[in-house]
Amino acid sequence: MTFPQISAKYLEPLSMWIMVAGMVALLQPWSLFFHRYGVTIILVGLVGFLIFSHIKPGPGQEQE
């Protein structure tokens, strides 16, 4: 499995889930630590998504 395939199959969805976790951390009322770093978690997921969404497998590479 090549890096573009790994990026499309695992890293891009992982970065989406990190953004969702950041939204949950920002909106929950129980932990000040997660509320404080919620925007940072969202930004980390956004940067990861922007990077990994631009790394696509070429037309000759099959996805498993």
Rank of each mutant, 00 (worst) to 15 (best):
M1C: 15
M1L: 15
M1P: 13
M1F: 15
T2Y: 03
T2V: 01
F3N: 02
P4C: 04
P4I: 04
P4N: 05
Q5M: 12
Q5I: 03
Q5Y: 06
I6D: 00
I6K: 09
S7M: 15
S7T: 10
S7W: 12
S7R: 05
A8H: 15
K9N: 10
Y10T: 13
L11M: 11
L11C: 02
L11A: 13
E12D: 10
E12A: 13
E12W: 15
E12I: 09
P13M: 08
L14C: 08
L14A: 13
L14Y: 07
S15Y: 02
S15K: 01
S15E: 03
W17D: 03
W17Y: 02
M19S: 01
V20F: 10
V20W: 06
V20Q: 08
V20S: 03
A21F: 05
G22R: 05
M23L: 12
M23Q: 11
M23R: 11
A25W: 00
L27H: 14
L27Q: 12
Q28G: 02
Q28Y: 14
Q28K: 09
Q28W: 06
P29N: 01
P29F: 14
W30Y: 13
W30Q: 05
W30F: 14
L32D: 14
L32N: 12
L32Y: 12
F33G: 11
F33P: 01
H35G: 09
R36N: 05
R36K: 14
R36D: 07
R36M: 05
Y37H: 14
Y37C: 00
Y37D: 00
G38A: 09
G38H: 12
G38V: 07
V39F: 09
T40L: 09
T40P: 03
T40E: 02
I41S: 05
I41M: 07
I41H: 01
L43I: 03
L43V: 04
L43S: 04
L43G: 01
V44C: 02
G45E: 04
L46M: 08
L46V: 01
L46E: 00
V47S: 06
V47I: 09
V47Y: 13
G48K: 07
G48W: 07
G48E: 08
F49D: 00
F49C: 00
F49L: 10
F49Y: 04
F49E: 02
F49V: 00
F49R: 02
L50T: 08
I51L: 09
I51A: 13
I51Y: 15
I51W: 11
H54P: 06
H54S: 04
I55W: 13
I55N: 01
K56P: 00
P57S: 00
P57H: 05
P57L: 01
G58Q: 14
P59K: 11
G60A: 13
G60E: 15
Q61C: 08
Q61D: 11
E62N: 02
E62W: 09
E62M: 04
E62H: 05
Q63S: 05
Q63M: 09
E64C: 01
